[in-house]
Design a protein around this nucleic acid. Structure first.
Lengths: 356, 356
DNA sequence: TCGTAAGATGTAATCGATTACAAAATGTCG
DNA sequence: CGACATTTTGTAATCGATTACATCTTACGA
């Protein structure tokens, strides 16, 4: 490439193209942005110069001038969690359709990392933020809110901050899980919870307790274990379970990973699923269908959730919110598979006997 | 906030801070970038103005002026794959240590999406690119290379393009897998391959075939199935396997997901693992330890891989490459678990008899 | 052919920071 | 105290696009 008359530097600027085509930079810009506002002849002339020079507009400059970046930030608690990976696909799809890009802010379950992304947002590198971490990062709470930065909460709701929420019906599904298990005859239940401070975990727990009340069970029919939405939490719960004198006949795990860890550990100890214990999970990750027995669980509409949430963010950015956009709750669906069964005859007998 | 003397607009600019502190923008900039090049008194004055105004520098403007964004792009074939999720953590860790940010470009197994990220790179929104997709995107091949954009290939090597490679020893591990199985006495093997055009898949296949030769086996001792690095591929392979008259006694799956799908499907058909068939996977995903029986597999050093790759990219950006940085191959480690066992007595007997 | 409206193009300001260079302030020493 | 070296600070150019406004063309009817 030894064309002359160009800057010797590296990048090709709009000015270079303009010079090459013998027009002004304004014209080049117009050709690229509003081809119909320019004479055909000029258009072709400029396009040829663009081709020849291999020009690509510098979007950093464009973003500065236009005061927007066409990019959204998504804060994710943990990328390794397949639930979030799926939601991200939905978000990406929707944003792409509107020409927006996506920056993923992975917290890796570590709240301190929020600061980094707050900075990204405040330094005007993104036009909006999707929060899947259940809160406006503390370090930017005042600033982000005051700056009027468009934000949407997904998965975990953020109440009372003027932020729209797009979530699934965790509570209802939890209630339904309990109802499902009691319908199978189970009257003593175990619950593997999520992390203590976690909003989603709290929702699911609330639903569980509501379901318990609705089923007419008392606290004495329950056992609860802490968890952290990971395999190990299920394993730990299993250890506690195995030490129990009077074991529940059904377990509700607030996420599939915990359910899977739990099942693995109790089966290793000789407990049969579902003959001795029924287990139901939550999330509907792909893996749940590949363990043995296949896991009964509630499936989240992950892709739809992502698309919907991104859609709301776009409306927010465009200042086009409708009343119904501020609070969206998508339903889950029960996947009945092989880890749940009617309470075993032995247990039923005990129950029947005590009833008589 | 009704301080006066400021622009009524939304964002607070460096000029506002300068005005508030009674200094020039240059001084504010210096206070923030080189605090020691400024008198203490001025420093404090400016900092107070920064506090009071809640100023955050606009990094779009800074990036334009500095002609760099402190951001790297990582092109990932499929975010839902836990292998990549883990690698990303490693990359993120390393980049963060150097003050760099990270944009994830998820292809979702769809090569057309490359174009979008090529544009991101060419429009100078990132300082470098990590390619995990095994090739320089066709749409930007010429341009990206000519522009001298720092690029690094990870996972899947890209040969002969002047791009450094950071990969794992796929071929060696595949060879080792075969050696391991033959050491257990298996003489007839099945192989579940990766997608046809995929470079990683090719490497692993090559290693497998090399191992077969080294073990003195012939093509007649082998069965091979196509796969696509997903569960379903394992299930499909299992169906083919079950139809076989003379079944291999050991299967090597080129990724854990396929191995897991395979195991699930053959067990459902009554074939025992490892008594009837040994199975070994590849990758070492967390899940492999939660199926039944636990999966023998090769673990990739994912986090290290990510950190190393990001490290090489940073050197590339800083023009600080050393000869040994251009080709790095990390070793894998065998996780011996429960899906592999010495060939069953029946099979051994057959073999012994035929030898005699 | 000319006047005028509509359309095409050019000029220069702008986005918000950084930084080379100039100017001013401070400090040091004879 | 004054001359000069050394810090500090300010002025203005710069990064590379977009776009309001001004200017120049073109087209068309009188």
């Amino acid at each position: 490439m030894s064309r002359k008359g160009w800057r010797s530097g590296k990048g090709i600027r709009i000015a270079d193209v303009a010079h090459l085509a013998g027009v002004s930079t304004a014209t080049v810009s117009r050709v690229l942005a509003n081809p119909d506002k320019v004479r055909t002849k000029t258009h072709d002339l400029v396009m040829e110069a663009v081709q020849r020079s291999g020009y690509t507009p510098n979007s950093v400059a464009r973003n500065l001038r236009k005061r927007r970046t066409m990019t959204a930030l998504v804060i994710v608690p943990n990328l390794a969690n397949p639930v979030f990976a799926q939601i991200l696909r939905g978000i990406d799809d929707e944003l792409t359709r509107s020409g927006y890009g996506l920056v993923i802010g992975n917290l890796d379950n570590c709240a301190e990392r929020e600061a980094r992304y707050v900075d990204l947002a405040l330094s005007r590198q993104v036009d909006g933020v999707i929060l899947m971490n259940g809160r406006v990062p503390a370090s930017g709470k005042r600033t982000m809110t005051e700056a009027g930065l468009p934000m949407v909460a997904m998965c975990a709701a953020i109440e009372g901050e003027g932020i729209p929420n797009v979530v699934v019906q965790d509570r209802e599904a939890s209630r339904a899980a309990v109802a499902y298990l009691t319908r199978l005859g189970h009257r003593s239940l175990g619950y593997i919870a999520g992390p203590a401070g976690n909003i989603i975990a709290a929702e699911r727990l609330t639903g569980f307790l509501e379901g318990v009340v609705a089923a007419g069970l008392s606290e004495r029919d329950l056992v609860r274990w802490e968890g952290r939405f990971v395999f190990e939490a299920g394993v730990a719960a299993a250890e506690a379970f195995l030490r129990l004198k009077r074991r529940p006949t059904a377990i509700y795990a607030s996420c599939d990973e915990s359910a899977i860890g739990f099942i693995k550990a109790i089966r290793a100890a000789g407990v049969r699923v579902p003959e001795d214990v029924s287990v139901i999970g939550f999330d509907g990750i792909e893996f749940a269908d590949y363990i043995e027995p296949t896991l009964t669980t509630f499936r989240q509409p992950l892709h739809e959730l992502g698309r919907t949430g991104a859609g709301v963010l776009l409306k927010m950015i465009r200042n086009d919110m409708k009343p119904e956009d501020w609070h969206i709750r998508l339903p889950l669906s029960l996947l009945e598979r092989d880890t749940t069964a009617p309470v075993s005859s032995r247990a039923s007998e005990m129950k029947r006997r005590s009833k008589a």
